[in-house]
Design a protein around this nucleic acid. Structure first.
Lengths: 227, 227
DNA sequence: GTTAATTTCAGAACGCGTTCGAAAAGTCGA
DNA sequence: TCGACTTTTCGAACGCGTTCTGAAATTAAC
């Protein structure tokens, strides 16, 4: 009873499950329950299939999430990038950031080896835009890679801190911060202590962009100075 | 049979396990088998105690790792920081980076909420040095926090990419990169395709420091310009 | 028509982090 | 001395991702 019109190749038991069906079910489950509650077992149950079956269509859970990211990355409408090289770099990086920030569970997969190389075309175009922007600005190709890499670190770091903060209740952290400021030695750490409640690791998005701008400025200046 | 000379307070069954004993055993296990193979069950077995017992001395595994980081952070010999504010910021951030890079499993805990606030005194001194350096350079306290935050994102991002690469075999990623360049459209992604094998997400340490320098320069320039 | 090859499916099991509830082993007040 | 209380310990269990092994269901070859 083949329920799926997949391209039959040679022989074998006809499949009752397809990769696209799995991805669709996963998307539905994430939409309904949130991505934190997506498990392999529940996903299999949703489709009405054994949990181990999924492993014939998908490498592992990480792979599944990655496929979802790529699906998502092809559906998002990306803004037009400005012509000015510097602004193009910043806009492309910001777009990458915002897309990732919108799907917090992307963070689970964000530091996997070869992550960038496995991106689908559209997100990859943003990577290209960063590299191309740096070259247009006057950097060597080598330096352009290095520009992207630094931007990537910065962005990944922010996304990970952000998603981790979102994953847990924020109030607990705030309370702990209260303890922290009650217990640190103001004489040994004067500047930190003076900051009081202005201290927080997670910044609003605008300050992320400001930091990105500073980073890009510094990187591009390095790039043209090295020529 | 109390085997531990912990400070007995009031009443209750005398403990056979202490937190410091757990930490010592964990350190030994990590030294022998590597941090990837440290599990709660094995650690409990090493001490000769039930696995659930550990949870009375430690909140969870993340907490355990965090305690180890703080222990480690107090034992490392930190270099003297230069007087020049800009160089002090860079040196402090680099020291944080190197210390974390030396303990790859720190990455598991690096984005936990309140991570910085829970650091022990010596590492916290490095955080203070970054903030103080920015203030000395001429930034407002608010901007100094923001300087630190950007540096933190950048550093965390690099460490996480680094530790994830170390966690898996690197060869596999290289092979996949080969596939990647075989399959992408060189016309659509000309700059990326032109990079060939110079493309890699993980940078050697020196280029991390160069990027950090660019970031710090940009951030400090922003800070004094905004005054 | 039978057999071999091939592909998909699923039950059992492993080790993991973690929680629950009860038992063990002390101190302390009456 | 005897219960009440407190702290520590631990076995059982849960859900998780994942692997192993073998069964089921089809096509291809003889």
């Amino acid at each position: 009873m083949p329920q799926v019109n997949a391209p039959r190749l040679k022989a074998g038991r006809p499949p009752t499950t397809s990769r696209s069906q799995i991805l669709a079910a996963a998307r539905g489950l994430i939409d309904r329950n949130g991505w934190e509650r997506l498990t392999i077992r529940k996903l299999a149950a949703e489709i009405g299939v054994g949990a181990t079956t999924l492993y014939h269509h998908v490498q592992d859970k990480e792979d599944l999430l990655f496929l979802l990211i790529n699906e998502y990355g092809e559906q998002v409408a990306y803004p037009e990038l400005p012509d000015d090289p510097r602004e193009r770099v910043i806009a492309a990086a910001t777009t990458i950031h915002d897309a990732l920030a919108a799907w917090p569970w992307a963070a689970d997969v964000l530091t996997t080896d070869g992550f960038i190389a496995r991106l689908s075309d559209s997100p990859l175009g943003l990577v290209e835009a960063v590299v191309a922007g740096a070259v247009d600005y006057g950097c060597t190709p080598e330096h352009a890679v290095y520009v992207f890499r630094s931007i990537w670190y910065y962005t990944v770091g922010e996304i990970l801190v952000r998603s981790h903060t979102a994953r847990r209740g924020g109030q607990e952290a705030i309370n702990r911060r209260g303890d922290f400021f009650g217990s640190i030695d103001a004489k040994k750490l004067p500047h930190l202590a003076a900051l009081g409640d202005r201290w927080a690791v997670l910044a609003p998005r605008d300050t992320f962009v400001d930091g990105l701008r500073a980073l890009v400025d510094g990187l591009l200046a390095q790039g043209v100075a090295a020529r």
